[in-house]
Each structure stands twice: as structure tokens, then as C-alpha cells.
Design a binder for these strands. Sequence first.
RNA 1: GCGGGCGUGGCGGAAUUGGUAGACGCAGCGGAUUCAAAAUCCGCCGUCGCAAGACGUGUCGGUUCGAGUCCGACCGCCCGCACCA
Length: 872
Amino acid sequence: MATERYNPRTSEPRWQKAWEEARLYETSNEDGRPTYYVLEMFPYPSGRIHIGHTRNYTMGDVVARYKRARGFNVLHPMGWDAFGMPAENAAMQNKVHPKEWTYQNIATMRAQLKMMGLSLDWSREFATCDVDYYHRQQMLFLDFHEKGLVTRKTSKVNWDPVDQTVLANEQVIDGRGWRSGAPVEQRELAQWFFKITDYSEDLLKAIDELDEWPEKVRLMQRNWIGRSEGLSIRWALVEDTAPEGADELEVYTTRPDTIFGASFMAISADHPLARKAAADNPQIAAFIEECRRMGTSAAALETAEKKGLDTGIRVRHPFDPDWTLPVYVANFVLMEYGTGAIFGCPSGDQRDLDFANKYGLPVIPVVMPEDADAATFQVTEESYSDDGIMINSRFLDGMTNREAFEEVARRLEKEALTGRPVAERQVNFRLRDWGISRQRYWGCPIPMIHCDACGVVPVPKQDLPVELPEDIDFDKPGNPLDRHPTWRHVQCPKCGGDARRETDTMDTFVDSSWYFIRFATPDAETPTVRDIANRWLPVDQYIGGIEHAILHLLYSRFFTRAMRDTGHLDFDEPFKGLFTQGMVVHETYRAQDGRWLAPSEVRVEGSDGGRNAIEIATGNGAVIGPLEKMSKSKKNTVSPEDITESFGADTARWFMLSDSPPERDVEWTDEGAAGAHRFVQRVWRLICEAAPAIEAAQPRSAKEGEYAAISKPAHKALKAVGEDIERLAFNRAIARIHELVNELQGPLGALDVDAAQSARAAAREAVEFVIQMIAPFMPHLAEECWARIGGEGFVAARAWPDFDPDLVVDNEIVLPVQINGKKRGDLTIARDADQATVEKAVLGLDFVQKALNGAAPRKIIVVPQRIVNVVA
RNA sequence: GCGGGCGUGGCGGAAUUGGUAGACGCAGCGGAUUCAAAAUCCGCCGUCGCAAGACGUGUCGGUUCGAGUCCGACCGCCCGCACCA
């Protein structure tokens, strides 16, 4: 019987429907089996699923299906990160309500995802813009507030002039807004903050324990938190130079050892002392104004000259009251870090050196390399900031700079200035509190009320949720909640008087900081049900893009701790395993006039050295550009529907995981996809051809018959593929499956209905293994094959078989034999042959005798079951 | 500038962590089948060489019986951070 081709277009929807009717992927919280929680970062409902999403979700799905087969109660949910700016932009441009736009996108994208055959528990689905969800988020906010983890303060903030909203530090990339790309401005605003800095030390320390996270992400978080140990030193002002009411200047330094190399002090333009000095000095006031205007964009900082202005104020050196140093206002000192003031040591810091050279300040070398000569060592154009030996530093001379650090700290801690120690050891962090106020409509309202009489009053829990009003207009820029005629007017819960609602909404990163916890109990009245959250979390395997290395992943780590401390759960870290996947990239094409061309608009001819692209519409040559992340602007996109339409979801899933390791980018090529589809058909043919012989057979029982040609490769592959999936080495697992199918092709083809029962049993087992192994990757094909050989139930509900340890080892092995480290042949010998036996056998080999030419070998190295090296 | 990662065939990549370099796939070449094509199947496929063999994992050096893997120097690419005191 000729085999019909496998048709994914009819098969895939059929199995999707069957799984759904059987409610195969719905997970129960009552199930007593060990839990496994696998999660992919949920998507923003932008409108359409991108091919990159499908690669991401396929990875998670392979893990989910594998773990399910391994007997785990698997949680694999999906939701929508649904608040945010694009919905408001769409509202402004297309006159659609953000809510309508968002839920429509979700419907489209849900349908797209369902076509991929993902084993998701859709019964737990929610969107962060669901009132049910943000209601609980407001509850959490109030709990955090009560616990002192929320503050309101006026501070300099990053203002995105395009999105007309504030951004957190983490959301400013190279001086530009992470979403709009506009250069960020500085503004003074009253903002709500989460006190993430309360956890600085803990967030940093715990990174050490995250051993299932990529090293790269751990490092980035460490750098972001930026812990440094130093000394905070108070310098006395010289009385007759000090402004009214000021008598000291506190600086933070990580290099107190260089204190004898100090030649000036520099303070931020925003420093109180600078403001005081400006009060009666117009020149200083003008300079401060200039610093403010400069801005803090990356470009501005790069080119900005290091500038300063002598305030006329002088300080006394803590070790020498007769030594006075000038205080400058400098444009490079940040008020936000340390104390907003530094002492400058030109010989030990390049920036200080440039500054000193510019303003003619002394340069005193105080640390020199160990092998340098103290008499001649000088610093002129290049500072020396490495470890070394102290010079020109009085009582520190001869010490290492680390010893000097301790000595200075010890002495200054004992010294007193106005009744307090001159210096204190201090740990500083780069991490700032998380500003969460956004001047936008489409976000979670902050449940707070401003009352003239009572100040800021939390909305009482029983009055939650604070719902977004639906009747809004987007005719003008800015926050529509501010302009709403009635919404903001409320009675003060405390005094009953007229009061105003907070009209800022929460940063959407708040929404994504705990959604993974909500999936445990998506319908609960409270944000979590503690025991159930504790049972499912932390997420065993989280999968997403590296772009969230800091933002989302750091916020989630903070949120988990804050929820722990407000009694919502009892664990510290949200994600046990983290995997950052690569992107799907595609060649780019450009017409001769520079227009971007879609892959469907060009015909590519030739191969390798001589590939040419031709624009189909015009017949003109086109330029083949580099591989880039698929994007609408470069038109190098391939839509998931097109692929599903022509090849089916299984082919797309298989191809996206086959060639490249999952952490690396994969190039989408039509040839590659066609190759994956060839394999789909090949498996189908193999199974159809084997079906008559194995349909009636029982799977092989252990030790039955000698069908090594079939059973050995099958068991070896089963072992290897399981290990590869555990390691998320999907490309290797796929290579192993390919190998097995290649190996089975011959023996299975030779099998017919009249073959011995034991042979047919071995074949049946091998075929079942193949089906089981492809099932996580190509679930629809696996079901179709399973049905074809008369299997019962769903493959998706079957247990992963155990390999037979006896079948994965060979009793006879082939040992490579080297002579002087070069392979000259091999030796077939019993696996457990001892050293002497191997040596004897090796010496008997023709090519070995020839090489030795009658002489005795100098040495024979036998690495058991690996290799033999004869040293002549 | 600081920190991290990576360099393997025409291409994506594999190599049990010091033990047969190039698994598997893509592309290519040859053959079978076919009236022909598609589909499929079989074979070849690092470089030089008729062959034996020699060379070969960015470059140079080192350790070792043995190096893609370890060490040192250099070259190149990628990523992150960056006035952080």
C-alpha cells in the first residue's frame, strides 16, 4: 500500500480539539504528585504573535511535555502583560478604546498560539488589565505601604517627553526611554517609590545561590546593584570661608588610602553647600544653572567637558589642620550617589587628574606599582589606580594600599569632629528605589487619596478595586485620568471631606512582577493562597529574553521578598532556573533605491559564494543584507500563520529548535523549514511502513531475543534524548532522534508481517520510543503515529519509558589506537578487558608492530574504554 | 575605559569537559527509480594529494603520552555597564 503523505492541516486541528476536550493540560492544585512549574515570559498583546514568541513557547512546551511524561504534575500557564503605552497610542491614532484594542489583540493572539499545539493550561489564563488581577495588585500595594515598603518623595526623575511619563532608572537605556527611544529629561516630581533598596544586600547576596541562572545575568544584576565598601569622611570647613550655617563637608570614598594625594574637593551642583554658596555669589549660581541645563543623556555626558568652579570655600585635611583644600562645584559629581561630594585624588583617578591639570591643582603620587622606584615615580598624564605601595603619605608609607585603607579607617574612626567620629565605614549601593508612578491611563490605578486635611490616605481595602473609568478621551496629550470630570473626586476615607484620587498609575513592570505567582491561584479573592503558592513556586524553569536581565527579573526578585514580608508566601526567590533564549533572525533585502523588501518580494538564486537576490516586481537586482532580528521596519518577517499553513506547527517547532542551541539566535530559512518538513514525512512513512508488522505485536519485554540492530540504538537514543532535554540541549536531542531514525530505516524496512514475534516486538518497542521522543517536539505527528500503530489513549498522557541499562552499553568496543599521539588504527576488544589484555592485543596489531619496527615501546597508555596510545 | 563571552568545513553547529575533530541538519556533487518531473532511496562531501600520506579548530608560544578543550601573549568579533567617587 502506498503511503499517503502526512497532512498537518487536517491532523493538527483535530488533535488540538481532542486534547482540549480531554482537558489534558489542565492542572489541578489537588494533585499529589511532585510539582513542576515551567513558564515562558508572557507576551505583551501587541496585535500578532511573532515567530520569536513561538520559539520561546515551544522550548517551554518541550520541557512541559517531557516533565509531564516523567510523572510530574506540570503547571504551564499563559497570560497577557496587557497594560501599557501602545494601547493608548492606538487609542489616540485610531480612536479605539485601549481596553477594546487590548482584548481584541488578546483574542487574535490566543488563537495564533493555539495553532502551535502548546500544552498550556488555558483555564488559568488572565490579563494584567483584568479588574480581578489589578484589584489584587492594589491589595498588595496597600500591604507594602503598611509595611513601609512604599514611599512618596519628590526627586529628580527621568521624564520621557514623548510618552509624557516618568521612567525608572532601569528603563533608561543609553539616556533614552526604553520604549519611545526619546532622550530622557530630568524633572522634579512627587513620585511613589517601592523601597527596593531595603533589599539591596539581600538581593545581591542571594545571586550566589541562583546556580541555575546564566552567569551573564547574575553578573549584570550584581553590577546593577553595585555594592561598594568605603569610608564616609567629614571634613571641617575653614571658618571664615564657610557659608552661613555650614561647618563641614561629608564625602564618600572607596579609596581612603589615597587621602594624602587629595588636592581638591568637588561637590554636585545640587549639593546643599553649593546652593548656600550660590546664595550670595551670582557666578556660582550661574554655573549651577549651567550644570542643570547640560542634561544627563549619554551623548551629553560623553562630550561634556569636566568643568568646575572654585567656591572659595576651604576644608581642613583630617590628618593635618594646617593643610587646606579648595572646594569646587563640579559638573561630574552626582548628587544621587554617595554624599554628592568627593575628594579628588588626581594621581589615583583619571578624571580627577584631568580636572587637576585643567585647574592647575597639585598632583601628588601616593600609590605606586610594586616594582616602581619611589624616588622617580611620577604621575603626569595617566593616573595609577591599581593596587600598589604607599608613598608620600606620611605614616602610610611602605604599606600596601589595602593596609593603608584599614589604617586610615582605624585612625579616623577614633578621631572626633563636633562630637562624632570623623569617619565611618559605609557600604554604598548603586541601586536606587523603584519609582513606579506613571502619568498614564492604561495602567493599574494607585489606590491612594490626597486630602488637604489628612494628607495622603490609603484607599481602605473594602473599597477596592479602584477601577479605571471607561469614559475617557485621548484628544489631548498627557494623562486622561487627570482630565476626567468626576473620577478623581472622592471623599477622604479619614475625615469625609473632599479629596482627590491619585491619578498616576503603576509602572507596568509592577504587573509582571508577580503574575507568575498569581497563576497558582488565578481566581483567589486574595492575591495568593499561601500554601498553594508555596507548593508551586519558585518557578522551576523560566524562559525568556536576555533583555529582561535586569528590569523584570530584578523587580520580580524584589516583589517576591516584599510579598514574603507581607505574609503572602514563604520563599525568597521567584525563579529557580532561568534560561535566556536566542532570537529568530532572517536575512534582510533591499531594493536598489534602498527600500526594504520582504522575503516574499525577492527571489534568491545561486548558492554559497554566488547568491543573488532579484526583486520580483521589477526584475532588478536586490542587495542581500545581514541577518537581523525579524522586524516590521526591515520587513524580514515570516508569519507563524504562513508557516503553519504550508508546513504545519510541528515542522515549525522542530525547525526552530533543531540547528542552533536554544540560547543562540536561529536563522529562519525556507530550506531549513523544508528540511524539517522532510523529516516529518520521513517519520510518518517509516511508521506507516512498519505498522502492519508491529500493529499486533506487544512491545518487547526485557532481554527478549537478540535484536541488537533495533533495540540497542533505540535504548541508547532514549537515554541520550532524555538527558539532552533535561539540559535544554534541544538541538542535540533532535540530532539524536535523526540518528535513530536513520539507523532504524534499514532494519524496519526489512521487517514484514511474517517476521518472528520477537523481532516484531523489538520493532514495536523501537517505534514506540521514536513516537515518545518526538512527542515533546512534534506532538500532533506523535499522536497521529501513535494512532496509526494502534496505540491506546494519547501519547501526550503516556509515561516516558525507561531505558534498559544492559542495552545502552556494548560488550565489544572499538578502541582507537594512537602511536605517538596520532591515531593509526583501532582495536575491537571486550569492554571490560583489563590493562594487560589491551596492551597485549595492541602489540599484536600489524600497524603497531610496523611502527615499532622490532623495538619495545617506551610506554603504553591505556585509558579504559577510551583510547590507547603507544609511545615508540 | 571597566566587566563578560566567543572564534571549529560553503553554512548552522557537535565533540561524554584533556582521549578517534567535524555527529546531526542545510547547501552542493554523483547515482538509482521515472517517458519526464516531483517525491523517494543509495553514495560522496575539511584542505592538498593518483595514492600512501601530510596538514587542519583565529595567530604565536607553552604544559602533556595526547590540546578545539588547560596556561601565556597577540589578533578579531559580539554583549553588558559606564562621570558610581
